[in-house]
Design a protein around this nucleic acid. Sequence first.
RNA 1: GCUGCUGUAGCUCAGUGGUAGAGCGCGUCAUUGGUAAUGACGAGGUCGGGAGUUCAAUCCUCCCCAGCAGCACCA
Length: 662
Amino acid sequence: MIRVTLPDGSAREVARGTTPADIAAAIGPGLAKAAIAARVDGELRDIMRPIEADAQLALVTNRDEADALELARHDFAHILAEAVQALFPGTQITFGPSTDDGFYYDVMAPASRGPFTMDDLPAIEEQMRAIIRADKPLRREVMARDTLIATWQNARESFKAEWAAELPEGQELSVYWSGDDWMDMCRGPHLASTGKLDPAAFQLTRVAGAYWRGDQKNPQLSRIYGTGWLNKKQLDAHLVRLEEAAKRDHRRLGQDMDLFHLQQEAHGSVFWHPNGYLIWRELESYMRRAIDNAGYKEVKTPQVMDARQWEQSGHWGKYRANMFVIPDEVPNVDDEGPVISGDADWMALKPMNCPAHVLIFRQGIKSYRDLPLRIYENGCCHRNEPHGALHGLMRVRQFTQDDAHIFCREDQIVAEVQDFCALADRIYKEFGFTYSIKLALRPEQRFGSDADWDKAENELRDAVVHAGLATEEFGWEELPGEGAFYAPKLEWHLTDAIGRTWQVGTIQSDRVLPERLDASYVGEDGARHRPVMLHRAIFGSYERFIGILIEHYAGRFPVWLAPVQAVVATITSEADGYAHDVTAKLKAAGIRVEADTRNEKINYKVREHSVAKVPHLLVVGMREAEEGKVAIRSLGSDGQRIMTLEEAIAMLSHEATPPDIR
RNA sequence: GCUGCUGUAGCUCAGUGGUAGAGCGCGUCAUUGGUAAUGACGAGGUCGGGAGUUCAAUCCUCCCCAGCAGCACCA
């Protein structure tokens, strides 16, 4: 007999080999029906898997949503693989995990038919539903490693065989049978049978290429994605969320609102239109006020520097593939012959600003009294990103960072990082973001000694701990191996209005670059010392941050950021004179306002400016003209507010004032 | 960079082996209207670029470019 303790503290003596399902049945028929899996000593397990020793047992039902979703999605993935093999014999299976909103499975289509496409999805979905309706039992079986390898080889499943062969020898491997005719190697757990899934709660969404084991050198597989839920209601809610996200897509809104455009002759670089650049300019002014108040000095550094400079900084060796290089010579202007000779010296567009800031630091002799020295730049950088990586404003080849480097002594690091945390906190909140902070630790490939890395990681961690931000509430997390090659990173991950996260801000403590570029200051002792260099950014880049803001606000910018803050729209042409008068007074008050005196009906104007997401529409007809008033209709509300022109100017001026100087 | 898909008017898209069409937008005219589309008329396109097949290519084939989705990458 073994002793099984339930969450309420009660214990039962049961025979060894009793399953959680047996125990659920003993407790009551309701629970027996609802229980879909079990946590045995905290580990999620099959409901039918026998318990072999004394254990803590918690039965899992659909109310334990996280566990239930995980189980369902994992099962959907298996059923997807089974369906694909049933429909397309000769398909090899590989892996199929659950994801944040569903599942995928990587398969290798038979050579005879080529990769799967979207057109294949409806038939696969139908087959999956058939498997679910068949309510096939999902049975766990433990197999010896060698037996399993042989099984896979016989089935001509070379990927599975390869994987099994890499697992430790002698290990017992579990497989799951779906009925008696299909099985996959899997750690589990799974639901008791395919019929536990809701056949209306999933949808296959797309198919894409993915490398075997994530390595570009390996064969490319077809990855079939699906979204999966516990019931149709959840699925529908998810599809609505996807639509909402699509409506906010910054590429679409950027075009609709005439903010910017991209075109193939300059792919990866942005053409900012007047409306979009107004947002940029507001952000730039905002950031200048912030860094001026925080004791930074703004600089501007060269766009192009000699390759030798990049060799010294280490970028030429490691990151040349992502740099735009140009020859240092006058091009051949003859019609015949090559434009460049090929034996000129090389220069490169800067992919980052740090070396240039070190060069400014190195001018003259710095004393410990000069530290911390905070050098800021709206630094325009170029990186030759792989074509497939480019994405609207989010990933571009030319971008401008709100970049600063703080040169300081070791004993100043923690205070500087804490100040930065406070600055970032204020700024992100003013844009309406919540955030989490994560610490990216040393990567495998790195410069510098382990002792330095220990120090650097501890300093960043300490600063966040002292700032009281290293808590679960702030999503504190440490990410092994994710740091930069020269330094660990603190990363700020913003959560936007619909719950998506974006990594933007960062601060990194770097001892490598000051060493490589020989930066030093004279200490109190009269000797030369190395400063530590803190790399930091809050927006990350203006391009990307604006892209995030567009999606965060769904194009409905707060008044201070809105390209057009108000439109004065006339009802009849008799009010044109008054409308121009109102417009001039608002302009004089610093409001970005336009007059709409076109020969159109007021309905039409209301619709058009609402669609254009203008925050305030000031409607004027003869009534308003005679009384010196305006009828304000604000975006997102149906009603209007009548107020005097003076009141309207006061209100708009207040809203148009950036939050940091309100 | 890899796989798949896509590229037709300013935008969203339809269409055909015999030199192109809609809606919106734009222009002109009429209309002066009270809070989400007034009506009529009109002007716009070497159908992404190049080569090939064909009597004839926007349509078929090949190459290139860009975009989209995913992967890989993201100092």
